[in-house]
Amino acid sequence: MGKLLSQKVALITGAASGIGLEVAREFAKEGAKVVISDLNEQAANAAAEQLIEQGYEAIAVSCDVTKEE
């Protein structure tokens, strides 16, 4: 049986640690390609690397979603 989110991309904000990272991991387990978004660029990169090491597809993006521009 296929994974629920196969061929989908999930953008998770605040995903460098804590609940956000666990949400990203669960999306990845279901087959999603995960975009880790966080204010802290180093933490976002580390979180994405962690998921990649676990066999998932992930990238990191540093951004502040409270600022429209």
Rank of each mutant, 00 (worst) to 15 (best):
M1G: 13
M1N: 05
K3V: 13
L4N: 12
L4C: 10
L4Y: 12
L4T: 15
L5H: 12
L5I: 15
S6R: 15
S6D: 15
S6H: 15
S6M: 15
Q7N: 15
Q7C: 14
K8S: 13
V9Y: 01
V9P: 08
A10M: 11
A10H: 10
A10S: 10
I12F: 07
I12Q: 09
I12N: 08
T13Y: 04
T13D: 01
T13L: 03
G14E: 08
G14Y: 06
A15S: 09
A16G: 04
A16C: 05
S17V: 15
S17D: 12
S17E: 14
S17P: 12
G18N: 13
G18R: 11
I19L: 08
I19N: 00
I19H: 02
I19D: 04
G20C: 08
G20T: 06
G20I: 00
G20L: 02
G20H: 09
L21W: 08
L21P: 02
E22F: 00
E22A: 12
E22N: 15
V23K: 13
A24E: 14
A24Q: 10
R25K: 13
E26H: 15
E26A: 14
E26L: 13
A28M: 13
A28R: 14
G31C: 09
G31Y: 10
G31H: 15
A32L: 14
A32T: 12
V34A: 01
V35E: 06
V35P: 08
V35K: 06
V35W: 06
I36L: 14
I36P: 06
S37I: 07
D38V: 14
D38Q: 07
D38E: 00
L39I: 12
N40S: 06
N40M: 04
N40C: 08
N40G: 07
E41Y: 07
E41I: 09
Q42R: 10
Q42I: 14
Q42S: 11
A43V: 05
A43T: 11
A43N: 05
A43E: 08
N45R: 11
N45P: 05
N45T: 11
A46G: 06
A46E: 13
A46H: 05
A47W: 01
A47C: 04
A48I: 00
A48L: 00
E49L: 08
E49I: 05
Q50M: 06
L51A: 13
L51E: 12
L51H: 08
L51W: 11
L51K: 07
I52Y: 02
I52H: 04
I52M: 05
E53P: 04
Q54C: 07
Q54V: 05
G55C: 09
G55S: 11
Y56S: 07
Y56K: 01
E57V: 00
E57T: 07
A58C: 11
A58F: 09
A58N: 05
I59N: 01
I59D: 02
A60V: 01
A60H: 05
A60Q: 02
A60C: 03
A60P: 03
V61L: 01
V61N: 04
S62F: 00
S62C: 02
S62E: 06
C63K: 02
C63V: 01
D64T: 04
D64N: 01
D64K: 03
D64P: 02
D64R: 04
V65M: 09
V65C: 10
T66Y: 05
T66Q: 03
K67N: 02
K67Y: 02
K67P: 03
E68R: 01
E69F: 00
E69I: 01
E69P: 02
E69K: 01
